[in-house]
Design a protein around this nucleic acid. Structure first.
Lengths: 239, 239
DNA sequence: TGTACATCAGTGAACGCGCGTTCACTGATGTAC
DNA sequence: TGTACATCAGTGAACGCGCGTTCACTGATGTAC
């Protein structure tokens, strides 16, 4: 066992990547449900059974693709947020939101793999959750920072007749989430961020899956507007 | 040609329905991508080619299922909203939101057919759009009524440092939507309703597709809370 | 450094399935006179 | 009312495809002495 990678190891790593990138290309044509090992093998000029040296089954390949895609969108969002770190929490939040949409539009089929209809018969193993949490974590970070700097407001609750208290179970859930991703952040702020998170992905999903066709098309301005509105709702003051 | 339906006509209508309901049952097991005419025929005890007397192709069957599903969720939302008509606009709005979630949870695979990943290779024909608009229309109706009764507020804009004006293209789009679904309703109100609409479906989609697993599970309280928050955001005062 | 053995990648055939769609046909139902 | 003809539902075979997975195998690469 040496530290230097043998030719075999290098070949294996490279071919593993090639299989995954071929699979990604095929996702674009067929959708995850009909992703075909035989078609991948064909495109790579291999015999289909050879793929079993790399992935023990179709589901394992799918899992690898899902983890890669979660990591890709997570990294994109983290990078966008970090790039404007100096500009303040609201800038980081909006940069992260934009990065979600941009990545989704650039990789619609991988986005569908993550956030679209679950693949029938496939159950995601536990391995995917850490990668899946990167986007929510990246969204929560600037909210957390703003909170710690005492620059987070709750505009809605203060302006409306009867502010709504968080139901107790939701408080617990928000507390759990804060404990893992943003220790010390108030449950109210977590709940607001969750609502903004679902709005963001609802909007991107509708755009990609065609619900906006006709009415809100192109969606650029709607996206920008909704994002600012939700940043307000979350309580992020102008930087 | 008589007004009385012949035995043939009745048999045809019944079998058409049976084919669709069998197809719906199979959606639950396989997903729309692998919906199989042969499997449907098998379950009905027919030969697969016989289905071509009823639907000229697999895509036409899919279209019929999609239209039926849009009409089903549309009717459910309209009924829920109408049932509390006397209670005021906010009650109608929240009843409509709850009906979306309830229907989605009762018919997860039909929901996925409408709002999930588009079926690869399938292009929805124009026939679906009228049915698809029923839910947005039903959501907009109480907002419109509240607006006409001068009981619609814009809490966020008034309480924040710098209220955001609608970008011009979004104003046009909102105007178009209002012209069709809610003549006279302000563009600002339409934009708010659109944001709430995307939040609602983002939340329901995440719940059904498993993004809440672990963190916000069960989602009942989160749903109720988010719905009230968005009703506030839309500007619907307590009835 | 050279050789013997172990590891592993990739082959090719096979198993046992599945699919949408077309076509010529039989036999029942409906219609016009 | 009865008969001739037209319409239509459903059959069964066929075309030409596709799939995931297993298995015994060849031959190249890597390792230990």
């Amino acid at each position: 066992m040496t530290a230097i990678r043998t030719a075999r190891e290098r070949a294996r790593a490279e071919l593993t990547d090639e299989i995954k990138s071929t699979a990604r290309r095929q996702l674009a044509e067929t959708g995850a449900g009909q992703l075909s090992l035989r078609a991948i093998a064909r495109e790579l000029g291999m015999v289909s059974s050879a793929l079993y040296r790399y992935f023990p089954s179709r589901d394992d390949l799918l899992t690898a693709l899902i983890i890669d895609a979660y990591d890709a969108i997570g990294a994109a969002v983290e990078a966008a947020s970090d790039a404007v770190r100096a500009d303040g929490p609201r800038a980081r939040w909006t940069a992260a939101c934009r990065a979600v949409r941009t990545w989704a539009r650039q990789h619609p089929h991988e986005y569908a793999l993550l956030y679209g209809t679950p693949v029938p018969g496939y159950r995601a193993p536990q391995d995917t959750v850490a990668s899946a949490m990167r986007v929510p974590a990246a969204l929560l970070r600037p909210v957390h920072d703003a909170f710690d700097a005492d620059r987070l407001r709750s505009p809605l609750a203060s302006s409306l007749p009867a502010p709504h208290d968080l139901p107790s179970r939701l408080t617990d859930q928000a507390h759990e989430i804060a404990a893992v991703l943003a220790p010390g952040l108030s449950e109210d702020a977590v709940a607001r961020a969750l609502i903004a998170w679902t709005q963001l992905f609802g909007m991107v999903t509708f755009e990609l899956f065609g619900q906006f066709t006709g009415g809100i098309d192109p969606a650029d301005e709607f996206f920008e507007h909704a994002m600012e509105q939700m940043a307000d709702y979350v309580g992020l003051l102008p930087d």
